[in-house]
Design a protein around this nucleic acid. Structure first.
Ligand SMILES: [Zn+2]
Ligand SMILES: [Zn+2]
Ligand SMILES: [Zn+2]
Ligand SMILES: [Zn+2]
Lengths: 135, 135
DNA sequence: GCATCTATGTTATGTTGTAACACACATAGC
DNA sequence: GCTATGTGTGTTACAACATAACATAGATGC
């Protein structure tokens, strides 16, 4: 079974996390299900339940604007603060980064309003360097 | 027919925009459909096609993390730059704001990567002032 | 043993979003 | 007038995303 620095993953969690890690990019829950049919997966809930936990652990991120999931780009990630994603609309490439300064400003605004910030979704759409260059 | 400073809305667009404006908060496409059945709407596409245009005009925003849509909070909005949303998980209240400074920092990062930023999704989850106060 | 908690398996269903095709209407060019 | 073109609309069917409800299995603690 695949292990993790902070969390001992269950069998299904390890299979789902392995699929996402190997893919190296975002996958929908149903794409993961298809990849894992040979491992005995039969129903979407098997994927969603594992994803829920992996997202809770912080080692998988959900991309709201794609209805997809991606393994954290940090090696041996044990969970971290607010992440952001630059998503290329030409090639589908996704780059994760951690815009602490921008998040600080957003949090300043929420605090000025008495809003207790729990988590952020920051997804940037556009065209990546390679796709800009090629056309 | 409802008019708009920049766009003369079609009948369906006006009906959908009217529903969102009157609601004063986010609605899903199917919730809008139900509201407009008495006006003759029968199928989701009638809503989605109108929403596509309204979002394109910039007078309706899509909330990716809710799969919902909300009328721009600006009076007589004619479209504007990157918006952000603070979404209360207790009461569902949504507050729109325009975090130009944070967006500037995000854009700086994308430019440093050669990424051509087209648009942003910034959605903050947490608890609003009223809900914090009430427990 | 027994209660309890978590993980899992399975069926069915609910929710969100599109494809494909047809028709109505306006406008521009001939 | 009458075509061509573009856009808005109506309708059926379907695809894609996500969860409810119930059953089973294994581990832990008493
Ligand atoms: Zn990460
Ligand atoms: Zn690209
Ligand atoms: Zn707005
Ligand atoms: Zn609230």
């Amino acid at each position: 079974m695949r292990t993790h620095a902070q969390h001992e993953l269950t069998k299904n969690q390890a299979l789902v996390f392995g699929s996402l890690s190997e893919a190296g990019g975002p996958l929908t829950a149903y794409a993961i299900l298809d990849l894992l049919r040979e491992d005995g997966f039969r129903a979407p809930l098997q994927v969603y339940r594992a994803l829920d936990k992996l997202v809770e652990f912080g080692i998988v991120h959900r991309l709201e604007s794609l209805n997809a999931f991606v393994a954290c780009s940090h090696k041996d990630c044990t969970g971290h603060g607010s992440a952001a994603f630059a998503i290329c609309e030409k090639c589908g490439d996704v780059r994760e980064f951690t815009p602490d300064d921008a998040v600080r400003l957003l949090k300043d605004w929420t605090e000025s309003q008495g809003f207790a910030l729990a988590r952020t979704t920051i997804e940037l759409r556009g065209t990546c360097k390679d796709c800009v260059a090629s056309g």
